[in-house]
C-alpha cells in the first residue's frame, strides 16, 4: 500500500493519477455518509471515511486495519487535518484525533508514504 497525505488542495489526487496512471473511474472518493469502498485501486478522502466510522460509533484505526486484505495493494489518499487550533466542536475534535491515529497506523503499514506540498511530492517513507 502506498499512502499519500497532505493539506487540502495540494495536488494529491493529481499526483496519484500521474504516478500510477489511474483514470477517474479507478478512484473512489469516501464520504461521511457512504464510507469507503476498498475494491478500487485508489481510495481518496480517507478523512471522510474516518468521520463515517466515528458516526457509526467505531474507531477508524481499528476499522481500517480490520480491512487490511482489501487495501493492501491500493493507493490510499488522505487530507492532513492535524494542524490548527483545537476545534470547538466535540465531533470535529474527535474526528481530528481519530484521523491522526488512523494515519499513524496506516503509515506503519505502508510501503511508501508521500506528502504533497504545493503539488510537489516529498517522500516520508
Amino acid at each position: 500500500m502506498d499512502l499519500m497525505i497532505g493539506g487540502a488542495f495540494q495536488g494529491k489526487t493529481a499526483y496519484a493519477k500521474e504516478r500510477y496512471g489511474f483514470s477517474d473511474g479507478e478512484i473512489f472518493t469516501c464520504t461521511a455518509e457512504a464510507g469507503a469502498d476498498f475494491s478500487y485501486p485508489c481510495v481518496r478522502r480517507l478523512e471522510q471515511y474516518a468521520l463515517n466510522c466515528l458516526r457509526r460509533g467505531i474507531a477508524p484505526e481499528q476499522a481500517i486495519l480490520a480491512r487490511r486484505e482489501e487495501w493492501k495493494q491500493a493507493v490510499l489518499i488522505c487530507d492532513d487535518i492535524s494542524c490548527g487550533v483545537v476545534p470547538m466542536e466535540a465531533e470535529t475534535r474527535a474526528w481530528r484525533e481519530a484521523t491522526g491515529r488512523m494515519l499513524a497506523a496506516l503509515s506503519r503499514e505502508a510501503d511508501t508514504v508521500t506528502r504533497l506540498f504545493c503539488g510537489l511530492p516529498q517522500r516520508l517513507k
Partner: peptide, 9 residues
C-alpha cells in the same frame, strides 16, 4: 501561506 492542514469547516 500554508493554510491547508487544519480541521476547520
Amino acid at each position: 501561506d500554508f493554510l491547508y492542514s487544519d480541521a476547520g469547516q
